[in-house]
Amino acid sequence: MNDRSRRRSLVTGVTSAPYQLWAVLFILVPLAFVAYYAFTDNAFHFTTANIARFFTATSPVTDAGGSPVQVRTYMVIAWRSVKLAVIATAVCLLLGYPLAYIISRAPAKVQKTMMTLIMIPMWMNFLIRTYAWMTILQDTGILNNLLAALHLRRVHIIGTQTAVIIGMVYDYLPYMILPLYSIMAKMDHRLIEAARDLGCAPAGVLRRVILPLSMPGVVNGVTMVLIPSISTFYISQKLGDGMFFLLGDAIEGQYVAGNLHFAAAIAFILMVALLAAMALMRRLTGKYTYGGAAA
């Protein structure tokens, strides 16, 4: 390494110092508090009982055939949360990707306007927005009245998995679009033209040029949508008729029951699992995110 680039990395290397300090003080120390609570009982003696409880607690449920079976309570809840979050993230990606691309190809002024329009709904209070969705999706709501006015069949959405996913997609879609857009806006469109000129079919252009170039945005968008949707509880309570009990509900419930230690344990396990999942995702997509755009 030559002298100049060493000096350069010294000068710019210190720029992350405040953040490193901040991360230790306000991310890792509170995390240590979570871990401390997760591994202690009410008298603050060390225990792994909280962690073990998450994996071993069972509940009696009635299976599809109507006979009683024992299931692992939190495994069922976790699976349900992951399933809904993954579906919501996938829908966000499917909707957000083309929209971000369309916006990135629009004239500069239109781009700015559209991006602001995408952010505006986020500046209305989250609770109030979710309430508004209840008004739309209810059996007696706006959507069904509209369908009835058009002489179409009414639909029952509220309280179904679809309603919960609509709520999640609505709330987190901007967090998918923003990172995708900021990558796509800077994409070198001459590469796409070149691929076309060289006879690449549209599907091929997408798969071999656009997708690899936008991969860092995809990874970030997925991260920003998947994570909050796994631990949400408000959306599922309001739009899911209170029938979808998710990890967020479990944590909230334990807190209200005065069981902060077990709540911390659930949060701790969730965090470890998500960090592992993200490390895996980074590794799988590593050639896109670390090695430059189109390696």
Binding site: A23, F26, F33, V34, I227, I251, E252, A264, A267
Partner: peptide, 20 residues
């Protein structure tokens, strides 16, 4: 640092709030 950066996003709000 990459990993640490993700932590505040993962933690459910109620846990972040109480731990802080």
């Amino acid at each position: 640092l990459d990993m640490v950066t993700n932590i505040p996003m993962i933690d459910p709000d109620i846990i972040t709030g109480i731990s802080m």
